[in-house]
Design a binder for these strands. Sequence first.
DNA 1: GTGATTAGTGAGCAT
DNA 2: ATGCTCACTAATCAC
Lengths: 81, 81
Amino acid sequence: MKQRRRTLKNRGYAASCRIKRIEQKDELESEKTQEYRDMEAMQEDNNRMREEIESWHSKYQALKKFAQDKKIIIPPDLETM
Amino acid sequence: MKQRRRTLKNRGYAASCRIKRIEQKDELESEKTQEYRDMEAMQEDNNRMREEIESWHSKYQALKKFAQDKKIIIPPDLETM
DNA sequence: GTGATTAGTGAGCAT
DNA sequence: ATGCTCACTAATCAC
């Protein structure tokens, strides 16, 4: 009688244990997926900033070229800054 | 005799199954850790580029201010580009 | 038939 | 005593 109860409880414990294992695996996978999404977003930011760098760089170079064409002397600290 | 062999083999299969489960979990965790490392590296790139943007932006502004101080007229397409 | 996986069982650990 | 986890077993699935 007593052993029987124990056996039935064990059955339940085993089931809990298996469910728990699956949940933990799912959780891991979710976290991994989320990290991947974050990484994609960051990559986009990254590309956006790369473009912005090139944009400002071009603007700077264009101004400098304009000065050179006009024979305007630019102070060295602005030239090479 | 035959059932005995089957049972022994099953014992082995069950062991393989358990090992496989553990390996897959480890693999998942490794991937997650690696993604985290990649993310940190990307974050650094990100910060570096943010600085570079600010750097070129400053250089551009400095040139523009120099021009204004010198009363140099800058073509609109360079001014607002 | 062989290998893999699942649920159930008892053993053993931890509380 | 209770809950959890492990290894083992039989049942079952997939090939």
